[in-house]
């Protein structure tokens, strides 16, 4: 992908984000933060690439270990973020009629 296509995706996504987030009910702003935390850990994709990349040059080995540590950190966030969001959302109940 060239830079301009990537930039277009980014700008469009900012607009989508703006409208989607304003539609989130204020009562769910804490779960919103927890789930955005979990999904921003999609950065794990970069960490995975680094972890399994063919080792090239003198610093390749270091790069791999940095990647693995990042995989671990991102995993804490992914599992923790989705689990804590699910736990909170399970608490929101309607009035028993």
């Amino acid at each position: 992908m060239d830079f301009i296509s990537i930039l277009s995706i980014f700008v469009m996504a900012c607009f989508v984000g703006y409208y989607v987030v304003w539609s989130v009910t204020p009562a769910l702003h804490t779960p919103l933060m927890a789930v955005t935390n979990a999904i921003s850990s999609v950065i794990i994709v970069g960490a995975l690439i680094a972890s399994v990349a063919p080792i090239m040059g003198a610093t390749g080995e270091t790069s791999k270990w940095l990647g693995l540590v990042a995989v671990g950190f991102a995993s804490v966030n992914i599992f923790g973020g989705f689990a804590v969001t699910a736990r909170m959302l399970a608490m929101y109940k309607k009035k028993a009629k």
Binding site: N37, A53, I55, M56, A70, V84
Partner: peptide, 27 residues
């Protein structure tokens, strides 16, 4: 908890950027 999770996202970004800097060809 949310602050702690944010710090991990931040650190993961630093580590990935550093990994890409140190071994750029596979990226």
């Amino acid at each position: 908890l949310v602050a702690a999770f944010h710090s991990l996202v931040g650190m993961a970004a630093v580590l990935v950027a550093a990994a890409a800097f140190l071994n750029p060809v596979p990226f």
